[in-house]
Write a protein that binds this DNA or RNA. Structure first.
Lengths: 188, 188
DNA sequence: TGTACATCAGTGAACGCGCGTTCACTGATGTAC
DNA sequence: TGTACATCAGTGAACGCGCGTTCACTGATGTAC
């Protein structure tokens, strides 16, 4: 049953990517390792050949998801012409598609309150991802003062996270849309 | 062992209040009914004399916590002289004390991503609480146009929620303070 | 108002279940000569 | 380059544990007469 080094690495990557998706969809506590491994096409017994614990996978999956989020927003900003990059980022983050599919979105919005209780390693990884997100947003602002750009970027980023989080909680679809639209209007 | 109707009602209220505290501190999934009942000074067997399920208690505890949050902010706003009520609400919500003690704070910040996956009943109760919070904030804005006041209030409220959520996730204390201070500066 | 009985709040043990983790095993891959 | 052996990725069963929920029981409260 042993696999080649290349296959092993592929399997490991597949588990991390599947985990990012499943954690974001069902929550960290709501995702069991057995289900997760099955979703990756494996049985749960092999998990510990790749990771020391669930917590370690959580950290790696969050790192992956943070990177993906930054990449998606950066790509959207550079590919969309005719409007400021900052505007594109806001619209992309506050899009109904992002709200409606948490599995491939930003982990800060899909796992926020769980991350606040996650272990230090996960929180450090996520902090790094947040800083990169803020830097990326700040770069689109093109303000003279870098401190002011960072300040504006932090504010915009936390507002985006709060808006998507609330848009998912709210049981009233109209209110949910209103939250996204209002936030876009205020930030844009 | 039977208790009087008055005692029964007191016990029930105590369970709900304890639950609001424990859920907000450890998360909904992270709080077991046995621990919760013990924290309320009872054994877990008696739980179902008061509630049909954990989900029902979650909904009631969230309703309680939402009401408490609105009350605390309203009181602070009306008791603090010398600055606009809106400014007081922002400062109170973004206070480090709120960040550092989630147990008595706003459930939208402490349970956000878990609430997005909660059952419909809980989400409806929370939606109602969010609407009341928004109305309360809107009332402090004293804008001519009520729609504009509501729009501003929704934006401010989701920004507050996002800021406190992120300030709790971040592993860097300076960044955590920076998030709160920046958000206060931008909203105020 | 007093008595007999029904109710039911709370206890503590037990239920099945799914969790994260461990382990003996298999057999293909990697390595040493 | 070929052979013998060690390694280890993945399987599937099992582990202890805590979860939400149920239940028989106790005895004080509430109710009917």
């Amino acid at each position: 049953m042993r696999k080649s080094k290349a296959d092993t690495e592929l399997t490991r990557r597949r588990i991390v990517q599947t985990a990012a998706r499943e954690f974001q969809r069902n929550g960290i506590g709501g995702t069991g390792l057995a289900d997760l491994m099955a979703a990756a096409g494996l049985t749960h017994g092999g998990f510990y050949r790749h990771f020391a614990s669930k917590d370690q996978l959580v950290a790696e999956a969050c790192a992956e998801a943070m990177k993906d989020t930054a990449d998606v927003l950066t790509s959207a900003a550079s590919e969309t012409a005719g409007q400021p990059k900052f505007q594109t980022i806001i619209e992309k983050y506050l899009d109904a598609a992002h709200r409606d599919d948490s599995s491939s979105g930003c982990p800060l919005a899909s796992l926020g309150s769980e991350l606040a209780r996650a272990d230090v390693n996960t929180r450090e990884v996520v902090t790094q991802g947040f800083n990169r997100l803020v830097d990326m947003v700040a770069a689109t602002l093109r303000r003279r003062n870098p401190d002011a750009a960072r300040s504006d970027a932090i504010f915009a980023t936390v507002a985006l996270i709060g808006a998507v989080t609330m848009s998912r909680i709210v049981a009233d679809p109209e209110l949910s849309d209103e939250i996204l639209d209002n936030t876009a209007a205020h930030l844009g």
